[in-house]
Design a protein around this nucleic acid. Structure first.
Lengths: 347, 347
DNA sequence: GAAAATAATACAATCGATTGTATTTTATTT
DNA sequence: AAATAAAATACAATCGATTGTATTATTTTC
């Protein structure tokens, strides 16, 4: 194994001083006189010294690394969250180890182990759809590694969370549909095992009730909210639920799938059926008509999660009281819900 | 600093054996008898032992970590590339450290330093728009860290690359526009400093020539290919280049921007102006009419880049001959270029 | 059953930086 | 100039696992 790397010992030998002095000089410790520092810095430069972070980390028992586990990077929401995470981490001198659970609990468990073994200073996590118990997080807790959940969280107490007020977002979305005149609003729901989708469902339901509309269980269509699921849901609606005049989808992807299907069947959006999505993903503003949606501000969540995590890391070994940050969502109104005021035809 | 962590020495002491035997047992070395292994494994489990990967890495001078530097995670192409990188890395027991250059050379330089200091086993890189010289890559080379460029590469010899045949993709795209009857095809070009955009430009130009069409420099509109740039280009075309009947954009984002603008001006796509993009991003299939585009297969590139990198890592210390993998692009034909066969009106 | 061969385990150095303590050097005071 | 204080540097242990070599225990061979 080639190790042509320069160490502090090499520098020390070259200058006939002790390696501890070299170490202190390189860390700009006040215990080394300026003159000596200059010599050491010059020599280090000359010899092409590069600190071995592994050795440093081992000794200091700190890696300046944050581990991130998310279901899937290529989803827009997650990639924008990571963007925020990476930027904040970089600003604070942390590296980011990126992992995907691919919605599998087994992989997630595996990854937590790897991150713990790698002694990351903290973990940011958005759980997989399969994650119903949280035993695997015990490992991080036992090893004193602070953890922050974002978006897809779990409801065990004592956690740090950065969340969107999904309930409110859905409430607003549904309320908006009602205000546009919709009376039979279908809901494309995600797996209710996830708190997040449960909250979106609740927001939908309670917005109906608050507006004096009946909650109709058969208007709730469950799926994993893929594009195809949206299309299937739309088909089901056309074939068996003719009364539906509005759709609130728990994500944009399914909403787009539904829209594409409806457009293919020449259904007028929003006039016959109005649609609202959730996420404000890149497709929502591009589709025609543009999709009304709830902004999920992934980058901001990533930023906040990282800031919270670093706060917890710095507080070690006495952990701060766990904190939950809840972002208020914004409804982005676009054409998929702007029903034209009803005008009598032929006048 | 709390270090309530169990080490191999603790296990050794508990069993009154030597730590080296424990280490070998945990690594399932044949030098330890099965019976002893069993005892050690049981004790390790019982004491909640977790290998300290830092120490192991330091000793072995290997981190099982790959560093990735890309311009921006939230771009669809890059996030899908990372998806492929992470999956392949995971399968091979590697972790991935993720970094964004945010299109800044300074940050990129900084990140290479960090990765080298962290002794990553290899680096996967897609350079920033500012990266015109490659001195910062010397550091990786000098430290014997294998590197693979993907998509945005540089043309210094001796590099490993995983690239798309951008020339061919653009050629096919332009050729397709010609075959649809376009005779004055504008090109939304990216920064020509990047080899990749130069290749796309060349493909465009040569496809024209091959079809006996004149190359008209004023039909090339340079920009950074943001959505707004696409819109501006479209405006310029409407105002000053009325002869244009087709647009080949060097990416989807600008193509979408242009389309939105043209649609706003009631220009018929593809009949008045046909459009082709590049990337096959998520918006291309959603926009109306759906955008014809060149598939960039980010995930596949990520996979291949990682496989190539791991091959190079395993070949150490004698590096394999550098390899360049070029993927052939696929033109995805959609409605933005399907001109209806010309039929005389009113017949 | 002694000698040789093999298996199993112990010893000790090492990876490279950090850090508490000890020692030497320099500066200050009387 | 001696005594004290303060500054600068050296010594040595340490982080936790790995690994070449040495030693002890066991098995095989004649």
């Amino acid at each position: 194994m080639q190790t042509n790397n320069v160490t502090i010992h090499d520098i020390a030998a070259a200058l006939k001083i002790d390696s501890s002095t070299v170490s202190r000089a390189l860390n700009n410790s006040p215990r080394v006189t300026q003159k000596t520092k200059q010599r050491i810095w010059a020599k280090a430069q000359e010899m092409g010294y590069q600190r071995n972070v592994l050795a440093s980390n081992l000794r200091k028992n700190k890696t300046n690394t944050i581990g991130v586990i998310i279901p899937r990077i290529s989803r827009f929401f997650f990639s924008s969250a990571i963007e925020g995470i990476e930027e904040t981490a970089f600003e604070n001198g942390y590296n980011v180890i990126m992992c995907q659970s691919l919605e599998k609990l087994e992989r997630e468990t595996n990854l937590v182990q790897t991150l713990v073994a790698n002694r990351v200073d903290g973990i940011i996590l958005s759980i997989s759809m399969e994650t119903l118990d949280y035993e695997h997080m015990e490992l991080a807790r036992k090893n004193g590694i602070p953890t922050v959940f974002f978006d897809r969280h779990c409801d065990i107490p004592g956690n740090n969370n950065v969340l969107l007020n999904d309930y409110q977002g859905s409430f607003d979305a549904t309320d908006h549909l009602v205000s546009q005149g919709c009376r039979n609003i279908a809901h494309l729901a995600g797996p209710r095992d996830l708190k997040l989708y449960q909250n979106r469902f609740n927001g939908y339901k309670e917005a109906l009730e608050k507006n004096g509309l009946p909650f109709q269980p058969d208007l709730v269509i469950d799926s994993n909210l893929m594009e195809e699921d949206g299309a299937n849901a739309a088909q089901k609606i056309l074939e068996t639920l003719p009364q539906v005049d509005g759709i609130f989808s728990a994500n944009d992807v399914a909403a787009v799938g539904a829209m594409q299907f409806l457009k293919g069947k020449n259904i007028k959006i929003p006039d016959e059926i109005a649609i609202v999505g959730f996420s404000n993903g890149p497709t929502s503003s591009v589709i025609d008509p543009a999709l009304t949606t709830v902004d999920q501000s992934g980058k901001k969540m990533g930023r906040l999660a990282t800031e919270l995590l670093i706060k917890q890391i710095n507080a070690k070994p006495i952990p701060l009281a766990p904190e939950t940050i809840i972002l208020e969502p914004t409804l982005i109104q676009r054409d998929s819900t702007q029903k034209k005021p009803t005008i009598h035809p032929n006048t």
